[in-house]
Design a protein around this nucleic acid. Structure first.
Length: 441
RNA sequence: GCGGAUGUAGCUCAGUUUGGUAGAGCGUCGGGUUGUGGUCCCGAAUGUCGCGGGUUCGAGCCCCGUCGUUCGCCCCA
């Protein structure tokens, strides 16, 4: 008989305790920052009807990149590849009774049938943060500022990443009125702009020239050169600067500046997915030479809620992924040492197991997480186990300690030992707990 | 969907040139001082050499296929 494989399914990861610690750390930072802005957590089903995604995204996307199946009732269902349609559905369903602006977040897993590569897995976790009901650029600014704060909360400095900002509204004006392209040409040009960083200047120019009608090609290239050279919104050609789309982005940058977000830059070539975005779009880029890539992004999608046949609700959101954040943290060596959730490992000396168990039980009664070594092994083996498990404290329990009711507590990292009464034991362990929390921030 | 690299002990890898008994370090387990560890000493266990087929007297090594991993392309909600 062939043995079963121990490998996880392609594109998925087994979360061993040390992996889960990292994930919980990332989730914890996300949750803390989102809640600090007054966002409340929600959740949605793992499965959604096929139509929900088909309506929103391109057919290719839903057919080629989702996990889907027919359920026992002949319904076509999809394992969610993203959160936005589900949360839009939830908002649409209760649009009349919600308190606006509605500030919501979720931390959920998703599946996409893709070829795995660096920073991309078939099963992945994302934070989704959205603000519903505000059309003003204050909402755009809030989401981008929160992205910035999340990076800060992970210990990143401004130099480590940059935030690139563009606006679909500007792109629309630019394509239709400034470059005078029809819809088909505009789509091609958007794709080309999106690729610009990956191809040579010559290829970019040649391919751009082909998109224009022949008689407009030369003039069009000059216009594109002007667009691309704009380092700020203000440097865009005059006819664009006067549009409301540009004024809106200028406002956004003013807000960001006021909020202390100094590493946000305007980038006319940022296109981002583009299916449902209707206003600003942004992406957070890793600046490290070893990991130069877009980590996550977001934008404004005012039209999506109206797919459910109701009044549109203006919405801005973003979705940082755990995989890319983890890559970022490892690349910049920002991952903190993450101790076990177990605070005390009880090392049992001689045949004091029963007394050790009683003491452990009392500690648990005081809300301390305690693990007891019940193996009866030699001392050094017990100690090595505690270290390997990355547990903060060791507590040595032998007959002498039980008789005297004075216990030896060892701080594993500092290699220091104290002999303490039960009450002092509890306060010492709890004091350390609070310090640890502060260090994480 | 396309291209490159790669798969040998729990982990990191050598062994492939020139086919000839399956290796190292770390880790694990046991012991060395029966109340204190990471980096001491001694000893031991551990492999369908990813999987399937082919060539050969003989394959970890050569050939074909396949699966996984990884880097890039495409795509990126």
């Amino acid at each position: 008989m062939a043995f079963l494989s121990t490998q996880p399914y392609r594109g998925t990861r087994d979360m061993y305790p040390e992996d889960k610690r990292v994930q919980n750390y990332i989730f914890g930072v996300w949750r803390r920052v989102a809640q600090s802005y007054g966002y409340e957590e929600y959740d949605a089903p793992l499965l959604e009807p096929f139509e929900l995604f088909a309506a929103k995204s391109g057919q290719d996307l839903v057919n080629d990149e989702t996990y889907q199946f027919i359920d026992r009732g002949d319904r076509k269902v999809v394992i969610r590849p993203e959160m936005t349609p589900s949360v839009s559905r939830m908002i649409a369903a209760r649009r009349q009774e919600l308190a606006y602006p509605a500030r919501w977040f979720s931390i959920c897993n998703f599946m996409r049938y893709e070829r795995p590569q660096r920073g991309r897995e078939r099963q992945f976790w994302q934070l989704n943060v959205d603000i519903f009901g505000v059309a003003d650029s204050e909402a755009d600014s809030e989401i981008i500022t929160m992205a910035h704060d999340i990076m800060k909360a992970f210990g990143a400095t401004n130099k480590m990443y940059s935030i690139r900002v563009n606006s679909r509204a500007i792109i629309n004006v630019m394509m239709a009125e400034y470059l005078e392209l029809d819809i088909v040409q505009a789509q091609l040009m958007i794709k080309l702009f999106d690729k610009r960083a990956k191809i040579s200047h010559e290829d970019f120019r040649d391919q751009a020239a082909e998109i224009f009608d022949e008689d407009k090609s030369e003039q069009g290239l000059k216009k594109i050169a002007k667009l691309v050279s704009a380092k700020t919104v203000g440097e865009l050609p005059k006819s664009l600067v006067e549009s409301s789309a540009v004024r809106n982005v200028q406002q956004l940058f003013t807000h960001l500046h006021d909020a202390g977000v100094t590493n946000a830059v305007f980038d006319i070539t940022l296109m981002r997915g583009f299916d449902y975005y209707s206003g600003i779009v942004f992406e957070v880029f890793d600046n490290h030479p070893d990991n130069r890539r877009a980590m996550f992004g977001g934008g404004r999608y005012d039209g999506l809620v109206s797919l459910f046949g109701v009044e549109p609700i203006p919405t801005v959101g973003m979705a940082p992924g755990a995989t890319t954040i983890e890559d970022f943290l490892r690349t910049h060596e920002l991952l903190p040492k993450l101790p076990s959730t177990t605070e005390v490992y009880v090392v049992v000396l001689g045949d004091s197991l029963k007394g050790a168990q009683d003491l452990a039980s009392r500690l648990r009664g005081e809300d301390v997480n305690v693990e007891v070594d019940i193996t009866g092994r030699k001392l050094d083996k017990q100690i090595k186990t505690a270290i390997k498990k990355n547990i903060t404290f060791m507590l040595f329990i032998g007959q002498k300690e039980l008789d005297e009711e004075q216990y030896t507590l060892k701080d594993v990292a500092k290699e220091t030992e104290q002999t303490l009464s039960f009450e002092r034991l509890v306060t010492t362990i709890k004091d350390h707990r609070h310090r640890g929390d502060d260090n994480e921030l």
